[in-house]
Design a binder for these strands. Structure first.
Length: 961
RNA sequence: GCCUCGAUGGUGGAACUGGUAGACACGCAGGACUUAAAAUCCUGUUCCCGAUGAGGGAGUGCGGGUUCAAUUCCCGCUCGAGGUACCA
């Protein structure tokens, strides 16, 4: 190897070596302790990787390589989440099969990933669109279909067991997850025909087909899950989404709400991440209360109307109820309305129905509603209470009806003011003339048996009383909704479902995988059926039609971390032994944007698979780190837009014009950033960051950049054109996209890796900025020079032999300090400070011109996780035949960090007075003695005795007199 | 609105359990080497006062507090990022 740091040659060599020797292949049987470190697998998009993608991969790779050096058997796999909308949209436009574009994109991703030198075990690669993989996605679905959730057992149970129960005792006194309350006896059940039985069972299955209100996205031609919709628009593409009733497959994730919430406590995730999931699950504890309808003319003459059930978290405010509100979709809405009000009510309901989610959300502050003419009876005061309908009450939460307490709920307050309804204060402490008092503290007033109680106690008492009077029960509600699992798309997993007489049945597990069929076009049929309906002969061998929807994006990613444990097992999702060994992901890297999607679905699937005894850990991801996003750093040039610069100077600033400015605006003029008053007469224009270096524009390249710019004029400062900059999203249209390949080409993968880590804390979002990259590059070059032992006069191509002498104490101190620091930093994922520590250590060693083998060896091992290629190369030069990957991480020995003396500033009544050099080994008593002596002799103390002497190790001594 | 996190030089950031704020790097300024460029090395670089010295003062978004000692802990604000929202 030559004297220069030829990163291109070094990196290519080791890339090939690792691949050929399968250096990072993980073993499923090993006596070593295991460590499973995982990155969220990417969706292979057509744009390829930009520098933001590898951020998390580099961090996880450092940990993976570090753990190997520490003697762990490390599982560090990678794969592709290869089903998804963009490939299908592209297919619709171009007619190209999504499988082809996906394959192409994956190859490009792989090429880019390889260049950075990750230690992935590629033998375990998985793709969610390969039949060998989605076979198991379909398998999980079948198992979900064949399971129900028993709250008593606190786990999923097989539906076959449920059928037995029904046959013997009907569904009485069962505490199980369900879509709606059904009541039947064993006799009734046994009398049902097949269709009726299947319909009943659908009410309990964990994967079920039901008519549900869905997010329908017409432009995409499909339904979307709640987490795929933001502000009434689709996350992908930003299309309008409407609510619609449709028959769809759903997953009963709500059954797991409480366990998903409780499980968070056991996880080592960031507080904000847990909080996002807690909010999404949205637990609220309260009670349901039934309000009987007053016997108005209508109700008295016709069939008995059931009582109005409401849910409240504030049963303590029950005496403040002055009206009731139903959601417009409430089944009783029309039924209870009086003759006079019926027309009004009908109109109101029709109007709200026609509004999209987005419109509805936009007018959140507009009050609307209508009186039904009906009254309910207050269960305690027996007074009549009017019933209204308003769209501020949602059918999807609680029972779709509320008791309104305007004094203590701001929405009820607004409604009451608008319709001029009474407001009764029942909790003291606020000013209800002005606004609702929503705080949960204060003393109850105007509330009969609750008077004088604190809110907390009043809630308890009220619930007791409600239960006692048999008008309601304590109830916990969750905001979490069941996950809608059908998509009317082509590029996804087919459901292993067929229909017989319109009733859905599962394929036999032996028939899996049900492969995605070929179709001629990727659009819905003329009849509006999903694309799969175009497939020729899309039916079972017996001729039954197959399901035409496909599964959503989160299906394939919900259990992929399990498949990595045992990716080639044809018998089962994951073999028992493999699962016993790897158990769960120890460290998971990914973006926080998946908190309400993938991360919650995965936890749900994992808990289900745990329940059915398939896996041994009930949480999938023990520790989670969220890498920040890397934003773009855009550059701007400033184009003259209003007045000529010279005119401006003459007229307004009374200065002579700058030389060479053309008279007229017929050619574009660009003004450097710091020319006075520039912003007054220029517009910023994005300029490609590749023709800007440290904010200085390369004028020649700029002229070549676009045809219309060849003839332009510049106003410079110090002979330079200085560009402005701003942090924006990394995007093609802002000319600020940086590909990792370009950096690898110019500086090498090791520099890219260390620089991305050096940029700042891993969890923080930050703009990509190449300014500092030279510093890291210089560091690696310096390290290389230290290894090869260069000096200016030395022009030979050979490398100097290493110094075999024993190290000096100061050399040992450098290396042992570094060992301790790097180990600490990796353990707390502080990679940026680790990089800094390397720089300091190598600088110090270079100053000492230390090329001792005994120092270089541990230094190189420490560096290996960060800059693996150069470390391998050096390892080879040190005479090792084995790859550095499985070397032993050096041990830290404390004694080498100890200096013989240390300087203490001594502060005297808070003021720093003098500095004292003391041996560090002294205990605090000896230090006190030494300080006292010193102070007496220098007459600081005069004749006083110090009250206390505070000694802070290695820092400072304080003396208070 | 509610929840979570954050704010430190010209810039990215460091300071781990309160203990010499600004490590490390970029940038900038000056210098060495070179015919020159590249590369490399050295010195300085929070701000203010002071003579370019010695020295002194201020300083971690703002205002208070606890402490011998606060970027760090507590209270009250301002601004920013993310999450979430008629969820009763």
């Amino acid at each position: 190897m030559g004297k220069n740091y030829d990163f291109g040659k070094i990196e290519q060599h080791w890339r090939e070596y690792w691949q050929k020797n399968k250096t990072f292949k993980a073993d499923n049987t090993s006596g070593k302790p295991k460590y499973y470190v995982l990155d969220m697998f990417p969706y292979p998009s057509g744009a390829g990787l930009h520098v933001g993608h590898p951020l998390g991969y580099i961090a996880s790779d450092i940990v993976a390589r570090y753990k190997r050096l520490k003697g762990f058997n490390v599982l560090h796999p990678m794969g592709y989440d290869s089903y998804g909308l963009p490939a299908e949209q592209y297919a619709i436009q171009t007619g190209q099969h999504p499988a082809n574009t996906t394959e192409r994109n994956i190859n490009r991703y792989r090429e880019q990933l390889d260049k950075i030198g990750f230690s992935f075990d590629w033998d375990r690669e998985i793709r969610t669109n390969s039949p060998e993989y989605y076979k198991w996605t379909q398998w999980v679905f079948i198992r979900l279909f064949n399971s129900y959730y028993c709250y008593k057992a606190g786990q999923a149970r097989p539906v076959s067991e449920l059928i037995e129960i029904f046959e013997q005792q009907g569904n009485e006194r069962l505490h199980i997850a369900q879509s709606k309350q059904l009541n039947f006896t064993a006799q009734e059940w046994n009398g049902y025909n097949e269709r009726q039985k299947q319909e009943v069972l659908m009410n309990y299955r964990l994967a079920y087909l039901a008519e549900t209100a869905v997010n329908w996205c017409a432009p995409l031609g499909t339904v979307l899950a709640n987490d795929e919709v933001v502000n009434g628009l689709s996350v992908r593409g930003g299309h309008l989404v409407e609510r619609k009733m449709m028959k769809q497959w759903s997953l009963r994730i709500t059954a797991y709400a409480e366990r998903l919430l409780q499980g968070l406590e056991t996880l080592d995730w960031s507080e904000s991440m847990k909080e996002i999931q807690r909010n999404w699950i949205g637990k609220s504890i309260g009670a349901t209360v039934n309000f009987e309808f007053a016997a108005a003319d209508k109700a008295a003459t016709e069939a008995v109307v059931p009582p109005l059930e409401i849910f409240t978290t504030r049963p303590d405010t029950v005496f403040g109820v002055t009206f009731m509100v139903l959601s417009p979709e409430h089944p009783l809405a029309m039924e209870i309305s009086t003759e006079e009000q019926l027309v009004q009510v009908g109109k109101y309901i029709a109007r709200t129905k026609n509004r999209t989610e987005r419109e509805r959300q936009a007018d959140v502050n507009k009050i609307s509603g209508v009186f039904t003419g009906a009254y309910v009876i207050h269960p305690f005061t027996k007074k009549q209470i009017p019933v209204y309908i308003s769209d501020y009450v949602l059918m999807g939460y609680g029972s779709g009806a509320i008791m309104a307490v305007p004094a203590h709920d701001s929405r009820d307050y607004r409604f009451a003011k608008y319709f001029n309804l009474p407001i009764i204060e029942v909790v003291s402490g606020g000013n209800i003339e002005q606004e609702a008092f929503e705080a949960k503290d204060g003393i109850l007033v105007n509330s009969d048996f609750l008077n004088g109680l604190e809110v907390k106690d009043a809630i308890k008492k009220a619930v007791e009383k409600i239960e006692e009077s048999k008008i309601g029960i304590p109830k916990t509600n969750y905001r979490l909704r069941d996950a809608i699992f059908s998509r009317q798309r082509y590029w996804g997993e087919p459901f292993p479902v067929y229909y017989k007489d319109g009733i859905p049945y599962m394929l036999d597990e032996s028939e899996l995988p049900l492969e995605l069929p070929e179709i001629d076009r990727y659009l819905p049929t003329e009849k509006g059926e999903p694309p799969l309906a175009r497939a020729v002969n899309w039916r079972t061998a017996e001729g039954y039609p197959l399901e035409t929807s496909t599964m959503p994006g989160f299906a394939g990613s919900s259990a992929y971390y399990l498949r990595y444990m045992d990716p080639h097992n044809n018998e089962t999702l994951v073999g028992e032994q493999a699962n016993e060994y790897w158990r769960e992901v120890d460290l998971y890297f990914g973006g926080s944007e998946h908190a309400t999607g993938h991360l919650i679905y995965s936890r749900f699937w994992n808990k289900f698979l745990y329940d059915i005894g398939k896996i041994v850990s009930d949480e999938p991801f023990r520790k989670m780190l969220n890498q920040g996003m890397i934003q773009g750093r855009s550059n701007f040039v400033y184009r003259l837009n209003r007045k000529m610069y010279s005119e401006y100077l003459r007229e307004e600033r009374n200065e002579e014009p700058v030389e060479g400015i053309p008279q007229g605006l017929n050619i574009p003029v660009f003004i450097s950033k710091n020319i006075p008053d520039r912003e007054k007469f220029t517009d910023p224009v994005h300029v490609d960051i590749h023709i800007v270096d440290n904010d200085i524009l390369d004028i020649g390249k700029f002229r070549d950049w676009r045809n219309d710019l060849s003839n332009v004029h510049f106003v410079l400062e110090d002979d330079k054109y200085v560009c402005g900059w701003e942090v924006e999203k990394m995007s093609k249209s802002m000319y600020n996209v940086q590909n990792p390949d370009e950096i690898v080409e110019k500086y090498g993968a090791d520099t890219l890796r260390m620089y991305e880590m050096f940029l700042g804390p891993i969890e923080q979002s930050k703009p990509w900025d190449t300014k500092g990259i030279e510093g890291v590059f210089r560091f690696l070059k310096k390290y290389w020079r230290l290894i090869v032992g260069s000096s200016d006069s030395d022009r030979e191509e050979s490398v100097l032999p290493f110094d075999e002498n024993s190290p000096t104490p100061s050399e040992l101190k450098i290396i042992h300090n570094l060992i301790r620091k790097i180990e600490d930093d990796i353990n707390r994922f502080s990679f940026n400070t680790a990089v800094s520590s390397f720089m300091i250590a190598v600088n110090d060693l270079a100053d000492l011109n230390c090329r001792k083998r005994s120092i270089i060896e541990p230094l190189t091992i420490l560096l290996a996780p960060f800059a693996p290629h150069i470390a391998e190369e050096v390892w080879l030069m040190l005479g090792h035949n084995e790859t550095i990957t499985y070397a032993e991480f050096p041990k830290y020995e404390e004694k080498y960090t100890v200096e013989s003396t240390f300087e203490y500033p001594v502060s005297f009544n808070g003021k720093t007075r003098f500095t004292l050099s003391l041996p560090l080994e002294l205990d605090s008593a000896s230090i006190q003695k030494a300080v006292l002596e010193d102070m007496r002799s220098s007459k600081w103390l005069e004749n006083r005795t110090p009250k206390k002497i505070i000694i802070v190790p290695k820092r400072i001594i304080n003396i208070v007199v």
